[in-house]
Design a protein around this nucleic acid. Structure first.
Lengths: 356, 356
DNA sequence: TTGAAAGCGCTACCAC
DNA sequence: GTGGTAGCGCTTTCAA
């Protein structure tokens, strides 16, 4: 392994000059720059970022702690983060907290040891972010979800509006008996979706019977169980809003097993859109989150904090907090349709018109 | 930010003692260990891994360069790597090469600068791994795919056997007109799948007309185009083997648009299995790669190389190369069935038996 | 404009 | 057992 000294010797200059070259100091003479670069290339020399980090007290590395990397939603988030990081000379250490608060805490400590400049965090349900000492370690930007009452930097989908708009879509199709399968309600992503759903119902004075509010946990199995329960009710709903991709899969399985046809017998609206949503039978109507953009903007905010004056280093409270809520997009496909009763009415109307 | 000196002062010991404590040196007296640990906890002190790395010439960090993180297959690979790394005290820097050889080369240089201890690489089509100087930088273990003629450490699916077994499944169902949609053929994953397919056909003396060999590029669009082409042939195949998940999606879209029913009119066997494979209509028969295990074993091999004696540091040629080929699993679902002609024969046989 | 040297936080060697 | 200290590779100040 070569050092700056080897390059200096080979190029016949001092180490300070070599350092000046790869830090683009304008004071180094072009001729010397040339000689140094040649020497660097000859030895496949790349400055040691570890030594550099120690000296500069800056690693140009950020940590990314994801509660559940297996959820394909996060793949796009990660890509957005990675792209923005890479084009700004940052590297990303990826940590999979696996929905385990203990592991999340462990990762946050590891990242601190490694002196990452900042952290992007999609927190688990029992969030370490609430502990103030974590924020003394490095700036943090939350992604996708925030704990109740959290006041800090965050980028997420405007879940309330997204759920509201989606539910309105169901109402406008003529549905009156609409059920919801929610996720956990202790983080914003679960709660805001339920709230948006409720708002849309209340505006139309539609009831939400207890049985129509099924509480899942964002996992496939819970979507399946809640789906079974809903469709076995004496008065099953005519439309179901499923609050994430996995639960939607479980719900579809439940419908299949019960031989309940979608959308004829029940409409399904799912949160999260993916490559395969348009390949289902029926093609799924979904609420698409801007995952890539979420990652990109989160990294941008973090970078901005890192460029803040050194004395507060992006940690101090004086820096204004940024919360970005990105708009989701409703993608209407074939899993939502007017309820059977409305079909009847429409047919009748059609008949009437024809008979004029 | 506190340093080892602050802890030493607070605990009333020397820096050497403090260092001894968090490096588990058995020579430190328990009473001192206690005092030091208390001081560390009091200040939320975590040893600076940057300084440590500089001193030890070891970062306990590995790089992971993925040609295409958007492919959900890699999500599981990454999880396997991450889990194995984490439980051995390693961190993972994730790099998305985006199928761009230039970007891949750039990342390999960045990782070298950061002095990662080793690299896991799913190479792009125009692979930097063939360049010998890369291997002087750090040990590399390839994942999922190797360039033709590569001799080094690698972990991948036994693509040849997987494709062979899958094709045999089609043959045993009675298919004789079997087509394939391949990916690029310059890396092992594409080529071995084609070879396994060919082998199975040859054993049964089945022809592979030129038109039945459609060359895709592992992207959705190519699966779609190849699917259209195949089913518009004067003599379309009765079964199609699609060489990855994305192309299978494209193929299914093509079948849908042409109103070709699967599996009645054509059977579909897809490489790669995912959460949604069992939720398609029809439920897809697939070849499931052990992605998580692939990541885990790749990281294990890399760790083993890192523990090799310092003088060759896992880079020298003397260390034997390990190539692991993991078995894939054929998951038979509903998208593959006997061809229409065989259905007829079976029905006839059934009739005959009844008439006995 | 260039070079010599101090020091970032830690480890490990050596002296006590 | 414990402590003092050189030095990992780099940046940057200061002197030439």
């Amino acid at each position: 392994m070569y050092t700056i000294r080897d390059i200096a010797r080979l190029a016949g200059v001092s180490v300070a000059t070599v350092s000046g070259v790869f830090n683009n100091k304008p004071t180094v003479k072009p001729a010397l720059v040339e000689r140094v670069k040649k020497a660097m290339a000859a030895l496949d020399y790349h400055p040691d970022q570890v030594a550099r980090s120690l000296r500069l007290r800056r690693t140009c590395t950020v940590g990314m702690v994801i509660a559940d990397v297996t959820n394909p939603f996060f793949t796009d988030v990660i890509r957005g983060v990675e792209k923005e990081a890479q084009s700004n000379g940052y590297s990303v250490i990826l940590c999979d907290a696996n929905e385990d608060p203990g592991l999340e805490r462990h990762y946050l400590s590891t990242l601190f040891s490694r002196r990452v400049d900042g952290v992007l965090l999609a927190p688990t349900s029992s969030p370490s972010v609430q502990e103030s000492h974590i924020h003394k370690r490095f700036p943090i930007v939350l992604i996708d979800r925030i704990p109740l009452g959290f006041a800090g930097d965050a980028v997420m989908t405007d879940n309330f509006s997204a759920a509201y708009d989606g539910t309105r879509h169901l109402i406008e199709l003529g549905h009156r008996q609409i059920a919801i399968i929610t996720g956990q309600l202790n983080l914003s992503n679960g709660l805001d979706r339920l709230d948006g759903f409720r708002k849309a119902l209340q505006e139309e004075h539609l009831a939400l019977p207890d049985k129509y509010l099924q509480r899942g946990d964002f996992q496939l199995e819970s979507g399946y169980q809640c789906g079974l329960e809903l469709m076995r009710l004496p008065m099953p709903p005519t439309a179901i809003f499923s609050c994430n991709n996995r639960m939607t899969l479980g719900l579809m399985r439940a419908l299949g097993e019960l031989h309940v046809h979608c959308p004829e017998a029940v409409s399904v609206l799912g949160f999260d859109d993916f490559e395969w949503s348009a390949y289902f039978t029926p093609r799924l109507t979904t609420i698409a989150q801007p995952a890539f953009e979420m990652g990109r903007q989160a990294m941008q905010i973090l970078l901005r904090k890192l460029q803040a004056p050194a004395e507060n280093n992006g940690i101090a409270d004086e820096i204004p907090k940024t919360t970005v809520r990105l708009k989701a997009e409703l993608r209407v496909r074939d899993s939502t349709a007017a309820p059977a009763s409305v079909h009847e009415v429409q047919k009748e109307n059609a008949t009437l018109e024809i008979s004029h």
